[in-house]
């Protein structure tokens, strides 16, 4: 049953990854909705680098809300619908990456790459699953590798290697668990030591994830999401806005490259 064109496994993967993408996109709606609908209109900001289009608050609001039209495609999938909606997701992410209201949020960077991956899979909607898995999974691995290599390289600097950056970023303001508990339990010098080990651990994990394209076993497709969930627990749940789509893509590859699919295809 898996070998037919437009096989249900490809469709389920697309539906699952799109849901994870939407979860990440809207998980910070408690911040984004009042921000887009009210703050950006009431107090617009300007910088000479940005063209008028990329400073227009209406553009950022529309691009944030537009991916909601992917819900009908998830409920009633079809090749054209999937192609249209994933392309739309990629365009919205790209515009928000360059918009003055949102350029700084990595949500739109990872969403952009995963939307391109989904577009690739949607394009191959009618192609045999094994063939799709053979191409889509390595592409996803390379995307993951490059994303986390860039993250790790930017931290290979004394500010992060010493733990100072994490110490300064997390302890003064971050009141979410487990930081609030750590802040209440340990002294400043102990927190500096914790920041040192936390910083090195995160860099180590990112370098491990950067190597994903080179790991042969398909177990990497579930190990990576486990690591990303650990990031969420030790950092802040809000980082799911960045990681949720990557978790979905990796789990999608785990599902897509399953033994049954590749054997039957």
């Amino acid at each position: 049953m898996w070998s037919m064109g437009g096989g249900s496994r490809t469709v389920k993967v697309l539906q699952g990854v799109m849901l994870c993408w939407l979860l990440g996109w809207y998980i910070k709606c408690y911040f984004f909705l009042p921000y887009f609908l009210e703050v950006t209109f009431r107090v617009p900001v300007h910088h000479r680098l940005f063209p008028a289009f990329f400073e227009n608050p209406l553009v950022s609001t529309i691009c944030y809300l537009l991916p909601l039209i992917s819900v009908p495609a998830i409920l009633r999938p079809g090749r054209r619908r999937m192609i249209f909606t994933t392309a739309l997701m990629a365009v919205c992410s790209f515009i928000l990456m360059g918009h003055i209201n949102t350029y700084n949020d990595a949500t739109f960077v990872t969403s952009f790459w995963v939307a391109l991956w989904m577009l690739f899979v949607a394009w191959r909607y009618d192609v045999a699953e094994r063939e799709t898995a053979e191409q889509a999974c390595p592409i996803a691995s390379w995307m993951m590798g490059v994303i986390f290599l860039a993250g790790a390289v930017g931290k290979l600097t004394p500010e992060y290697l010493s733990g100072e950056a994490f110490f300064r970023i997390f302890w003064p303001d971050n009141v979410t668990w487990p930081h609030s508990w750590l802040l209440a339990t340990y002294s400043k010098s102990q927190l500096a030591t914790i920041s040192f080990y936390m910083s090195r651990m995160i860099i180590g994990m990112e370098l491990f994830l950067a190597g994903i394209p080179f790991y042969g076993s398909r177990h990497k497709y579930w190990v990576a999401p486990v690591i990303l969930v650990c990031f969420t627990i030790t950092n802040t749940w809000a980082i799911l806005s960045v990681l949720s789509c990557l978790i979905g893509m990796m789990l999608g590859c785990w599902f897509l490259s399953g033994r049954k699919a590749t054997a039957d295809a």
């Binding site: 790209f94 990595a106 994303i147």
Partner: peptide, 8 residues
Amino acid sequence: QPVPAMYN
């Protein structure tokens, strides 16, 4: 901009 730079 598509080059990831989280916590850099």
